[in-house]
Design a protein around this nucleic acid. Structure first.
Lengths: 334, 334
DNA sequence: TTGAAAGCGCTACCAG
DNA sequence: CTGGTAGCGCTTTCAA
């Protein structure tokens, strides 16, 4: 089942078969029909590798995420995938589980695949990797990391402003003992987001007593971090989570400790994933437009298509505080 | 950056470069070092397409799922992915969103990629597709669908028995008005699982009044199905869900309608995904060993590796009822 | 409108 | 241990 067999059966050259398969409008109708018939009869299936190799260009985009269990990433993927399909592209996803070595492996694999573009949606990036990607000359778009340059674009959300909104809101509600639940960063001892929290608090709410706890990104991580937090003796009146996914885990541990939300302690998430509306109590969170991120990512990756975002650009998305049931005024001291 | 350039720089033939890149232990140490140096200096990245084309075999497995938002599929994928990586394989995932056309497209794409094996984890399969896959001669493993034959293996779970366990348990608790919340099957008017419920009820609990509701697989679908159910005037004392993911949506709608779980109505899920323990109340559900499924899938796909599952086989996994907070005795009639 | 043929980058076989 | 070379299946000039 190769082009040649089809060609033979249709009594044309492989070039012609290739033409009809690629919808090149120069083939005579009758020839075309003959070829299609042969394709059908032989149940011919093209070989993508041969096609990519010969054509020199791939119709595949790559997307690397830190944690595909977190619905946030899945949402971005789906938006990107939809756009890609609409334009005849495929997207293959790779998961790093926040492991640096896996990130390196995934990036190399994507390069080996000669993807038409690569979206890197991970928390932290090694600068040598950025360098390597830059030199690879393939269109790359990062989420929330690195600075744009030549083939490297950037989509980021104003995380600082989001955390600020949360802290201010909680502060106004009277909270003076806050905790931040984050997840392990790929590199460095302190995650960027954790640092953002710390700085925001000291700037906007200096008289607040705070603590941070860190664990794996996920339901279990949120739960565990909370257990540690409580175990340390600290009694926050509000727990600010790095994302909704972990917040749901926090909610569970609190429930098990007999602490009511929001009566005893307020909890906030981040991302506004669908689940944040389906847990109990529903999470107060910060909305991040994941669909837009997916669309922007696609635009950034398209090589030359008309009227799309040029490479080497950066776009910053703003966030929005979403008030729901998990937050309330600070509990009255008895 | 092709093999040839590396060869030139290292002053060896492309054959030799290929050998060191593929760890073929016949190259002299000094030559090897020279090649590696050239690779390093040129930042050479192999071309996977050329490699696959020339070698005639791919190190990629494919996996097609119906709904990657549902953690069930993600869990299976992760187990498979882990095994694959451990053996030097990659797995690319495709999502069909329960759309038949998308399934066809995904399968064709996988064939075009010449994957070394394909896992098809979707609810329903067209028999012509099964035929096509069978003829493709590539190792394929289905989940819960079709019958094994030559290159087609099968992993399934005893869904019937699982539903039976749920119905019996609920029946013993005194429930006589049950509802089943399912999701759209790809084909046919009634999903297999819905039918299983109906048959189980009539066999094991003939005097039970029941109804079914169907919607999209997901949080929103579960919620919507429940709303419709309640809207119809039917007042089940127990709602059996096709999976945990939808059950979480059911829980939310019930809460909004002011119905308490399990005091007013019991709810059960299926799959025992992590989330089922993190929602409130925690779901009584049926455990499906997703890790094992992933491992079995991998084994079924491995061509000839020693001591692995031969192709064309079928393995049926049993389930286990997990009792948690979402079920209880039928509410007393006042 | 169609065919012939030169690669695309790599693997694998055959010599040496 | 290493080099030469024939493809793998397809796209893409260049001629016809």
């Amino acid at each position: 089942m190769s082009l040649e067999e089809v060609a033979k059966r249709a009594k044309v050259s492989t070039a012609t078969v290739s033409r009809v398969l690629n919808n090149i409008e120069v083939v005579r109708g009758s020839t075309r029909a003959r070829v299609l018939k042969a394709v059908e009869e032989l149940k011919y299936q093209p070989n993508l590798h041969a096609r990519t190799l010969a054509g020199g260009k791939s119709r595949t985009l790559g997307m690397i995420v830190s944690n595909m269990e977190n619905p946030f990433f899945v949402d971005v993927f789906r938006a990107l995938d939809a756009d890609a399909h609409a334009h005849g592209y495929e997207v293959v996803m790779a998961n790093t589980d926040y492991r640096a070595e896996q990130l390196v492996a995934s990036i190399h694999l994507m390069i080996a695949r000669r993807v038409a573009g690569l979206a890197v949606i991970v928390s932290e990036m090694d600068s040598s990797l950025i360098q390597e990607l830059s030199e690879s000359n393939m269109p790359v778009v990062f989420f929330d990391v690195g600075a744009p340059r030549k083939n490297l674009s950037n989509v980021r959300v104003n995380y600082n402003r989001g955390i600020e909104r949360v802290v201010e809101y909680l502060y106004d509600l009277g909270h003076r003992r806050m905790a931040f639940v984050g997840h392990h960063p790929t590199l460095g001892p302190t995650s960027l987001r954790e640092r953002t929290f710390v700085e925001t608090v000291s700037r906007h709410a200096p008289n607040v007593e705070w603590r941070t706890a860190v664990d794996a990104d996920g339901l279990e991580g949120g739960r565990h971090a909370t257990r540690e937090l409580l175990h340390s003796g600290f009694r926050p009146t509000a727990i600010i989570c790095v994302n909704d996914f972990m917040a749901v885990g926090v909610l569970r541990e609190l429930r098990e400790q007999g602490l009511r939300v929001p009566e005893d302690v307020s909890v906030t998430g981040f991302d506004n994933i669908r689940l944040s509306e389906f847990c109990h109590p529903q999470l107060t969170t910060v909305h991040i437009p994941r669909d837009r991120i997916g669309h922007l990512v696609f635009e950034s990756l398209m090589p030359d298509q008309s009227r799309t975002r040029p490479p080497g650009r950066e776009v910053v998305l703003d966030t929005e505080l979403v008030l729901r049931e998990s937050t309330g005024p600070v509990p009255a001291v008895l």
